[in-house]
Amino acid sequence: MAESTLSAGILTNIFFQIVQSPLNIALVGIIVFLVYNIFKSRNNNTPVRPPVPELPKLKKRDFTVEELKKYDGTQEDGRVLVAVNGNVYDVTRGKRFYGPGGPYAAFGGRDASRGLATFNVTAAGEGYDDLSDLSTMEMDSVREWESQFKEKYEFVGRLLKPGEQPTNYSDEEDEPPTGTSDKPKDE
Rank of each mutant, 00 (worst) to 15 (best):
T12M: 05
N13M: 04
N13Y: 07
I14M: 13
I14A: 10
Q17Y: 04
I18C: 03
I18K: 06
Q20C: 10
L23H: 03
A26G: 09
L27H: 04
I30M: 13
F33M: 06
V35W: 07
I38Y: 13
N44T: 14
N44V: 03
N45A: 15
P47E: 15
P51F: 01
V52P: 01
P53I: 14
E54K: 12
P56D: 13
E66W: 02
E67Y: 03
L68S: 10
K69L: 08
K69I: 00
Y71R: 03
T74Y: 05
Q75T: 07
E76Q: 15
R79A: 14
L81M: 11
N85V: 14
G86T: 12
G86P: 04
N87Y: 09
N87F: 10
V91W: 06
V91E: 09
T92P: 05
T92A: 03
R93M: 10
K95W: 05
R96N: 14
R96W: 10
R96T: 11
F97N: 00
F97Y: 06
G99C: 12
P100T: 13
P103T: 03
A106N: 11
R110H: 14
D111G: 02
S113W: 11
R114Q: 03
R114C: 06
R114Y: 09
T118Q: 14
T118S: 12
T118C: 08
N120F: 04
V121G: 03
T122K: 13
T122Q: 12
E126F: 03
D130K: 09
S132G: 14
L134E: 04
T136G: 00
E138A: 14
M139K: 00
S141C: 00
R143M: 14
E144L: 12
E146C: 02
